[in-house]
């Protein structure tokens, strides 16, 4: 028997496989394809204080081994989530985490405070790294001072597990990770999308309505893996690794680089059953390598 359970401080996951926010809807979209209770956790769509329409179409451009998106946090706001969506999904036998985003600090604080009251939500993922909103979002996650200030204020009202999602669009991600750890973050998740763009050479027009967007998919995996490893060597809080994970082998690589858990994002669009396949693949790897506890693999990369 292999033991897949991992702990992110007080947050217990039955296995290290979670879903990345914005790629898994509210879980309901995947009910036809998988048994959601088989996952370590799900991250529901980025939620903001108020309703957001998101950016105009076109919001997506395919790239070699990946895609750019500029959805722009389309959601109906935290009150709608609490009143309408939460009652529909709170029976899921897995950890449901809400990704919380905002334009100003007060929005983050108010949203986090409302989510704090929901019994079946044991954690939030603070999104200080969305590249697709005009104000806030990534701006908070690209300087130590602003990242620290938003985490500090949210920490005052949010009493459960506080995960902070980091942006890769920075010179040194370890500095940001250390800053949010200092302010009381319980874990960090990384990476959010890389800022990119795409142009149609025939029409000379950008392919996204916003010109720039967030790059995801296997093309970003080496960057994400490097950042997880750097952050693992810089902080003491658990790390949730994500960025281009397409299969169990990729997931194991993130765990070896230092991630205690992983999130699967863009791959959900290609194979809606990928998450449960990764859980099985991790088990198979552990049996093959005679690893009893998946926690024995965390940061177990052999650099010597």
């Amino acid at each position: 028997m292999v033991n897949l359970e991992v702990k992110l401080k007080d947050l217990i996951l039955k296995n290290p496989v979670m879903t990345a926010s914005g790629t898994f809807g509210y879980g309901e979209e995947f009910e036809d394809f998988i048994d959601i209770s088989q996952l370590g956790g799900i991250l529901v769509k980025g939620t903001t204080r108020h309703h957001r329409e998101g950016n105009p179409y076109p919001r997506m451009a395919e790239t070699p081994s990946g895609m750019l998106n500029a959805v722009g946090l389309q959601n109906k706001g935290v009150e709608y989530f609490c009143d309408n969506i939460y009652p529909r999904i709170n029976h899921y036998n897995t950890n449901i985490l809400v990704n919380v985003s905002g334009s100003v600090i007060e929005d983050y604080v108010e949203t986090a405070a409302m989510i704090n009251e929901l019994d079946k939500i044991p954690a939030i993922e603070l999104n200080i790294s969305c590249p697709n909103v005009k104000e806030g979002g990534m701006a908070f996650g690209t300087s130590c001072a602003s990242a620290a200030s938003v985490v500090r204020e949210v920490r005052k009202v949010y009493k459960k597990h506080l995960m902070v999602k980091l942006s890769p669009n920075v010179t040194d991600i370890t500095e940001i990770a250390k800053a949010v750890e200092e302010e009381g973050a319980d874990s960090v998740s990384l990476i959010n999308t890389l800022l990119g763009m795409a142009i149609d050479s025939e029409t000379r027009k950008p392919l996204l309505s916003t010109v720039t967007g967030g790059l995801s998919g296997p093309c970003v995996k080496p960057v994400a893996l490097r950042m997880v490893w750097q952050v693992f060597n810089a902080v003491n809080i658990p790390i949730v690794g994500l960025g281009g994970i397409m299969n169990a082998k990729d997931a194991i690589e993130f765990i070896l680089a230092g991630a205690s858990a992983i999130q699967i994002g863009t791959a959900n669009f290609i194979d809606p059953q990928i998450t449960v396949k990764v859980v099985e693949g991790i088990k198979e790897y552990m049996i093959r390598h005679q690893v009893e506890n998946v926690t024995d693999l965390i940061g177990a990369i052999k650099t010597q």
């Binding site: 914005g22 790629t23 898994f24 809807g25 979209e29 995947f30 769509k45 329409e53 998101g54 105009p56 179409y57 076109p58 919001r59 997506m60 451009a61 395919e62 895609m67 998106n69 959805v71 389309q74 863009t266 959900n268 669009f269 809606p272």
Partner: peptide, 22 residues
């Protein structure tokens, strides 16, 4: 026919601007 990623409502990429919003 909009460009889409998932095809089942998860990615929110293929939106159409309607009288009800995106």
């Amino acid at each position: 026919e909009n460009t889409m990623a998932c095809g089942f409502g998860a990615c929110l990429c293929c939106v159409t601007d309607t009288k009800r919003g995106n």
